[in-house]
Computed example of a mutant assay.
Amino acid sequence: MGHLISSTIMLQAAREQRFAITAFNVHTLEMLQAVVDAAVEMSAPLILQTTVGTVNHLGPEYIVAAAQTAAKMANIPIALHLDHCTDYALIVKCIRAGYTSVMIDASMHTYEDNVRRTLEVVKVAQAAGVNIEAELGKVGGVEDDLVVEDEDARLAVPEECQRFVEETGVSTLAPAIGTAHGIYKGEPHIAFGRLEEIQRLVSIPLVLHGGSGIPEEQVKRCVKLGMSKMNVATELKIAFSNAIRTVFDTNPDENDPRKYMVPAKAAVKALTKEKIAMAGCGGKAELMLAATSS
């Protein structure tokens, strides 16, 4: 492809064709490489994501450089997204560094304040040709330092979603429909009827947060009802960490990172392929390349 691209056109095409593009939160170079390798092998469009914690840990310039290198080497479209950010200054910093998609998460505020904060980001992101994602309702669970207790989680209101999109002009919307960040304690209770109504009222791609651990049949139903992007974070971290833990359980004296990173990358790659297949975006890279070059 040669360079990182905005995910806007990719997600619009996915919405029209009724599949979802998988977005993976990566925290190390090895995770990024494994995710990209899997997507290339499956000829799938890809969204790389980093949390605010990872940006603060590695620095946006290092992350962008690694993602840009992947985009130059891969023959698939790749976007780089900042996930769940509440800090306007950090969003601007990431856009300047080269991120091609950002999420302003003001869902913990009132509807009016959410609109106001989102509009601030829309102005700068649209000028830079960057995708803007926002959230309505509250997705429960834990994402980095963001913690939403079950009793505080709330579902998005379909009519509010329509109004919000019209008032802000966001590119993509993450409505809370009963999913949660992290690993589910039991079966997720997804409000499919609400999702169907939201999809009917808004014309932009919808984002499925809390994609780790949702049963395949529920993921496919969400995609069929309009979810065009599926976020995967916690499961990827667990696969990566468990593979490293297994190495040390077998050989406690191992001290060569290259030795324990090999199985860690393999575990992430295998899981990435599973999620790509689940979302239905395998083999869609050529379609995305055509959409983004037209």
Rank of each mutant, 00 (worst) to 15 (best):
L82W: 08
V122Y: 01
V102W: 06
V115M: 05
L119N: 15
I91M: 08
K123A: 15
R117H: 13
D87T: 09
H84N: 07
R117G: 04
Y88G: 01
I91L: 14
Y111T: 10
K93E: 03
V102K: 06
Y88C: 00
D105A: 06
V92F: 00
T110G: 02
D87Q: 14
V124H: 06
A106K: 03
T100C: 11
D105T: 04
L119F: 00
D113T: 14
V124K: 05
C94D: 04
R96M: 08
I95H: 07
D83T: 11
R117Y: 12
T86S: 14
T118V: 05
V102G: 03
I91A: 11
D105M: 03
T100V: 08
G98C: 09
A97D: 06
Y88R: 13
L119A: 10
V92C: 12
K123Y: 06
S101I: 09
Q126G: 08
L80N: 07
Y111P: 08
H81K: 10
T110V: 06
T86G: 00
C85R: 03
D87N: 15
I95N: 06
C85S: 13
M108C: 06
D113C: 00
D87Y: 06
M108W: 10
K123L: 10
I104T: 08
H84A: 10
S101H: 05
I91F: 05
V92M: 07
V122D: 01
T100K: 13
A127E: 15
L80V: 11
V124I: 15
K93W: 01
A79K: 04
R116F: 12
V124E: 11
